[in-house]
Simulated assay, not measured.
Amino acid sequence: MVDEVEGQGGPSPARQSILTDPLDELDAQLNRLRSVADELRGSRGKPVLAGDQVELIEDGPTLLRTYERLQEDAQREVRVLDRPPYVTPPSSQQQLELDRLHAGVGYRAIYGTEVFESQDIMGVLPELQSAGEVSRVLAQVPMKMAIADDDTALIGMTKRSAGDYHLLIRSSGLLDGLIATFEMLWALAIPMPALPFNGDIAGLRPADRDILLLLAGGATDDKISRHLRISPRTTQRRVRALMESLGAQTRFQAGVQAARRRWI
């Protein structure tokens, strides 16, 4: 009966929200970007979209100049997805962001948890936060990206190295999709712990480090139990104890806090 009703009038709004997975939309967006990049690489200099809306950038110096120009041209806000590797040390870009923040340009940045292992980026984040950058953390950042206002986006297309190839995307439906992607990830991310952070935990067992690593990666209790070969009851007890000790409201927050304190 339910199928008959839906067939006559279409899925209900609630049913439609279940059928439309935001992560599926993200995958489709990334596949489209890769297709555009491959076409650009094959045609070298010929626009894929009308009006030179997409430009391929393959060398490091051009990439750095483009990224700096994107920030300098922003009038309202720069939105960033960030993760290693880096073309140049993050500290080399710190002053430009500070200047733009002091000029009244807002910055929102989503960092992958890998940044906790980068001494350079962790060295500049406290000053950027103090100057006004609003930072969040996400376990899986799908790509590197910077968006200036609603006008231009610069994205990296691969994970292999910092300088594989990038796309500069100007006003288009593709840019609108990237902006929507950022906002979706922003809603999923959690606030970056205040930096610098000082603290310690008593009684951290060797196995707890492995549990925290798996939590940061989004593992379920069942997966942790199987991976570490401990009982589900022991897993649940240790996860609860670690979350309480870290003051974390969610499992992912526990992983982030542990990474920040360099326990993992």
Rank of each mutant, 00 (worst) to 15 (best):
V2P: 08
D3A: 15
V5L: 13
A14H: 11
A14R: 09
Q16V: 09
Q16E: 13
I18H: 08
D27H: 13
A28K: 12
A28R: 14
N31W: 08
L33W: 01
S35H: 12
S35P: 04
V36R: 02
V36K: 03
A37W: 05
A37N: 06
E39I: 15
E39P: 12
E39L: 15
G42A: 13
S43D: 12
G45Y: 05
G45T: 05
P47A: 06
V54C: 07
E55R: 11
L56Q: 10
L56H: 12
I57T: 06
E58H: 04
E58P: 04
E58N: 05
E58A: 06
D59G: 03
G60C: 13
T62I: 00
L63S: 04
L63T: 07
R65D: 08
E68K: 08
R69G: 09
Q71L: 12
Q75I: 13
Q75S: 12
R76H: 14
E77T: 07
E77G: 02
V80G: 00
V80K: 05
R83N: 09
R83M: 10
P84V: 09
P90M: 06
P90V: 11
S91C: 13
Q93R: 15
Q95N: 08
L101S: 03
A103R: 04
V105N: 00
A109V: 15
T113P: 01
E114A: 08
E114I: 10
V115G: 01
E117H: 15
Q119M: 09
L125Y: 09
P126H: 10
S130G: 14
A131N: 06
G132L: 12
E133F: 10
S135M: 07
R136K: 12
P142H: 09
A148H: 02
A148G: 03
D151K: 10
D151M: 08
L154Y: 09
I155T: 12
G156P: 03
T158F: 07
R160F: 14
A162M: 02
G163F: 05
H166Q: 06
H166F: 07
H166L: 01
S172F: 08
L174N: 07
L178C: 00
T181F: 02
T181V: 11
E183I: 01
E183K: 01
L185N: 00
L188N: 05
L188W: 11
M192V: 12
P193C: 09
N198H: 06
D200E: 10
A202F: 04
G203S: 07
G203A: 06
I211W: 00
L213V: 13
L214E: 00
L214M: 11
A216Q: 10
G217P: 03
G218I: 03
A219F: 01
A219M: 07
T220H: 12
D222Y: 08
D222K: 13
S225M: 01
R226T: 15
H227S: 15
R229T: 11
R229H: 14
I230C: 11
I230M: 13
S231N: 06
T234R: 04
Q236H: 10
R237M: 13
R238K: 10
R240N: 12
L242M: 10
E244L: 07
S245W: 01
S245V: 05
L246S: 00
T250S: 13
Q253V: 03
A258G: 12
A259E: 12
R260H: 09
R261S: 04
R261L: 13
R262P: 06
